[in-house]
Design a protein around this nucleic acid. Structure first.
Lengths: 200, 200
DNA sequence: TGCAACCGAATGAACGTTCGATTGATGAAT
DNA sequence: ATTCATCAATCGAACGTTCATTCGGTTGCA
């Protein structure tokens, strides 16, 4: 891959967009390079000019999307938010991001459950988007005795797990994305995560 | 597909086993019919005798695995279990099943995040294994005022979402499957789900 | 002049599926 | 008891398609 990727060539942006769209609707199978070229109006040769192989393209796209997500979920936290407010804010952003970027959600979903994930695990580090920052944030809550005094990974699994399941459920029409539902969900997670010997 | 499938031909069992294994290690890509034939010692022609297409094979395998999971998770519930005990029991079985059947977990994971899922949604009904029974079970808890008085899908998302995230986390080595961890996780989910105006 | 960006026809490998042939079990007809 | 017809089960070589990738070429900026 190429350093120029960072200042974001229009061609590359088109390729990324086309790849996301195609994977969303046709899956990882069913999105050959030829269709990516067609959909993005970039010649196959050009794509291979930037990405040595299809795998490299997928992996670069993954890193790009991950950074989008990371930027998004911690955005808009005000100084005067207490821990609970931030806890809600980040979780809601997480769900919102995936709902607003359905193709990214599909892509991540497929990426993480495919052997791509395993193969590149070493290079990925943070298994689910922004999880390291989330992990630090939850650890902070543990240290301040706001959250349960348990292994932080248990809380991460709850926090992220419920968010992902929620998005799935909304996507497959079992659930409506209403203010009421989101608030009730956040109550469920908060009540589960919070240290009951102290706060509320 | 064939009715004889139900009394489980040895050949078909071999094909199913080989397919699960291959999909687990090589993903949905990377498991061509030729390799399934090779790994299972069943001729390609024979596989096509039972399944009209690769899609049909995958879908039949899905239904088979789903019924395995359904049988498993509600097994072993004693008459004298109260609701909380059953709540824990089923959740623990859910996690245990996936940990004991890693290939099935991989397969479901990939199946649900692929367009297979969308295409066959009408025929699937219960999106994640055994979810309908889980849904009924949780609805019962709501009706009895034991659980929070919310849309049951919110509780399903929490219950299943945390279980899936837990298995993922264990699989990718962030988490150990210890008694202590499982109990703390169940406390987290229970505290989140329970109706705080009443019980504990 | 050199080099990065760009193009798409051509290539060879890999894939899903087909099909004609073989086997063996069942049972009706002789 | 023997023959024969039928048909499901089995097999794998062969087919046509589709895929990822290559490569020789053009363009245009520095």
């Amino acid at each position: 891959m190429n350093v120029r990727l960072m200042n974001f060539n229009e061609k590359i942006a088109a390729v990324f967009a086309a790849t996301l769209k195609l994977i969303h609707t046709n899956g990882f199978h069913g999105t050959p390079m030829s269709k990516i070229a067609q959909e993005s109006d970039v010649a196959i040769g050009t794509i291979y000019h930037y990405f040595p192989s299809k795998d490299d393209l997928i992996f670069a796209l993954f890193k790009h999307c991950r950074s989008l997500l990371n930027d998004y979920i911690f955005d808009g936290i005000k100084e005067d938010f207490d821990y609970k407010a931030s806890f809600f804010h980040v979780w809601r952003n997480f769900v919102k991001f995936y709902l607003e970027n359905e193709t990214v959600f599909s892509f991540f979903d497929q990426f993480f459950s495919s052997p791509y994930h395993e193969k590149n695990k070493a290079e990925i580090q943070e298994p689910i988007g922004g999880q390291n920052k989330v992990l630090d944030f939850l650890q902070e809550g543990i240290d301040q005795k706001i959250l349960k005094q348990v292994d932080v990974h248990l809380l991460v699994a709850s926090y992220i797990g419920v968010a992902l399941a929620t998005v799935h459920s909304i996507k497959f029409k079992d659930l409506k994305f209403t203010e009421k539902n989101m608030e009730e969900l956040m109550e469920i997670i908060w009540d589960g995560a919070v240290n009951r010997n102290k706060n509320n």
